[in-house]
Amino acid sequence: MTSTQIPGATDVTDPATDPATDLALDVRGLKKVYDGQGRSVEAVRDLTFSIERGSLVCIVGPSGAGKTTLLRCIAGLLGITDGEVVLDGERVTSPPAGMAVVFQEYGRSLFPWMTVRQNVELPLKEKGLRRAERRRLVDEALAAVGLTDSEDAHPWQLSGGMQQRVAIARAVAYEPTVLLMDEPFAAVDAQTRADLEDLVRTLWKRLGVTVLFVTHDIDEAVYLGQRVLVLSNRPTVILEDVAIDLPDERDQLETRSTPRFAELRHHVYELIQQAKRGHRPDGEAPA
């Protein structure tokens, strides 16, 4: 598996660090087999990829490709059978300090008995940050997602898109090295979705955080990412690591109507179709 370097893409990260050697996340030979009642299911066979600090990588795959399994393994929420996940040079065995996860089910991931502000602040309290520091981080995070006015509301008083903004603010305030997003916009309407996609791009650029974004939506993956990792069907391997060489300034209308966007979308779409038919990279004809 070779990861294609994209010229220009590293300009958004801290220029002081050397992107070639500075990996935020390194996944090597990840394998996950579920064992249960005398029957074992191989969910993920062999995944190897790395993510440079400050990049935005999307993972896309056919439904049932084990996207969520993969994300839970990386997040340290699920034990892995073989291989290793390395975050900031340290092997992940349990949820690491340098990671924050935004789950798809925002309504169930927020604490309904707390206000928006308390929701964002709680992980910081658990981290042991001082009061003033917490206030600063929460204020910044809420401002960044445009929720400053709703800080005293409870999550259930907000629309779905706003609830997911709260979850994003909570993750951003935690100041993770890597922000994992598990199909975060699958449950919101199309217009809200476009807003939230742009929000992710904006936050990523402004804060320099590394983002690993899992989605089943091909357009979303191509629009957001600097790279798109296309997964095979189960047992999962990487079918192709597609470099997205679109201009860095992306716009829902302009970017999506460029010929290059269409080409990339076409290519990823074909890969997904191949994956659905059971095509595998070590098979007869590599794509």
């Binding site: 839970r72 340290g76 929420l77 300090a97 924050a100 996860v101 789950f103 991931s109 604490f111 981290k127």
Partner: peptide, 9 residues
């Protein structure tokens, strides 16, 4: 919510 609490350690 359990996963959320675990992932935030």
């Amino acid at each position: 919510i359990r996963d959320t609490a675990r992932s935030y350690r």
